[in-house]
């Protein structure tokens, strides 16, 4: 008989490449499928969010100036690391009521999705760039560039896949991210942060918080140093107020309504373009 006592895991926030507790000291308990409290999670505050944005902003210039090849390799590295820890993710999803089959499917699609976007890192630019034949003696070209800091409120369905499907295209496009994990099932988001941590992403480039969208959405959407915001929840009132707040600094708003992340339509380079700006450069042609 095995008399060993398991070590239980403490789930923290992931900010600036560090696992830290919320500054507010608040937590919220999560019950498993039997109704038993098995973990406590940090209930992130607006100050935690503020810190995350601060570090995300700091990380923008470094991450966006990485070569596309390098960004692709890092995304691929995340996929590799996740593959190696597949079992743990399946277990965590399963623990909170997702069937083992569904959990397995979700984790596998998540890994494939990361590989999918890793491959886009050095290709979408060619697809969405143009050399524009202007009617004057100028060379003129347009290329997609990052937007900056993207705030993401993850969906509750497919907590791991949804999170990764939103983070990956924004991240591969050179943006840095502050993401609120699924409220109902945030465990895998934090465990995913461990995967990120082991995959050579720069500090602050992806930050993951746990907490409540009812509390944090206001700050996600009103923070003036955030360039874009993503929401895909079903709360239309909240969606409206997010968009109203976002107008204060003309944020790029993406409301992904009822997207099934499990199918191929849940991935495309157009998601990268949602977090890109087109920059056009002119230069005279002369001697």
């Amino acid at each position: 008989m095995n008399s060993r006592i398991d070590i239980q895991k403490t789930y923290k926030l992931y900010i600036n490449g560090k696992f830290s507790r919320t500054e507010s000291g608040r937590y919220f308990p999560l019950k498993d499928s039997q109704g038993k409290t098995t973990v406590n999670l940090c209930q992130a505050s607006r100050k935690d969010f503020r810190e995350a944005v601060k570090f995300a902003r700091k990380a923008v210039s470094g991450w966006s100036s990485r070569t596309a090849y390098n960004r692709g390799q890092i995304l691929y590295r995340i996929a590799e690391t996740l593959e190696g820890r597949k079992k743990q993710f399946i277990q965590e999803l399963n623990h909170f009521g997702i069937t083992k089959n569904n959990a397995t499917q979700e984790v596998e699609i998540t890994i494939d999705r990361l590989v999918y976007y890793a491959g886009w890192a050095d290709k979408y630019q060619a697809l969405f760039s143009s050399v524009n034949p202007v009617a004057s003696a100028h060379y003129n070209f347009s290329v997609p560039e990052y937007q900056g800091v993207i705030a993401i409120i993850s969906p509750n369905d497919n907590p791991l896949l949804g999170l990764v499907s939103l983070i990956a295209p924004a991240f591969v496009g050179g943006n840095t991210i502050v993401c609120l994990a699924s409220e109902k099932n945030p465990l895998t988001a934090i465990t995913f942060a461990e995967v990120l941590h082991a995959s050579d992403i720069p500090n602050g480039a992806i930050n993951i918080l746990t907490g409540f969208s009812s509390e944090l959405a206001e700050h996600f959407s009103s923070h003036k140093d955030v360039n874009g915001i993503v929401y895909c929840g079903e709360n239309l009132e909240l969606n409206k107020s997010i968009q109203e707040n976002a107008s204060e600094n003309v944020k790029r708003i993406h409301y992904y309504d009822k997207i099934n992340w499990l199918i191929n339509k849940g991935q495309s380079p157009y998601f990268i373009m949602d977090h890109s700006e087109i920059k056009t450069t002119w230069h005279p042609i002369g001697s």
């Binding site: 003696a137 005279p284 002369g286």
Partner: peptide, 13 residues
């Protein structure tokens, strides 16, 4: 004389 100002042809035109 190697360092005289540069001229932009298109701007001149």
């Amino acid at each position: 004389f190697r360092q005289t100002p540069v001229i932009d042809q298109v701007g001149v035109n």
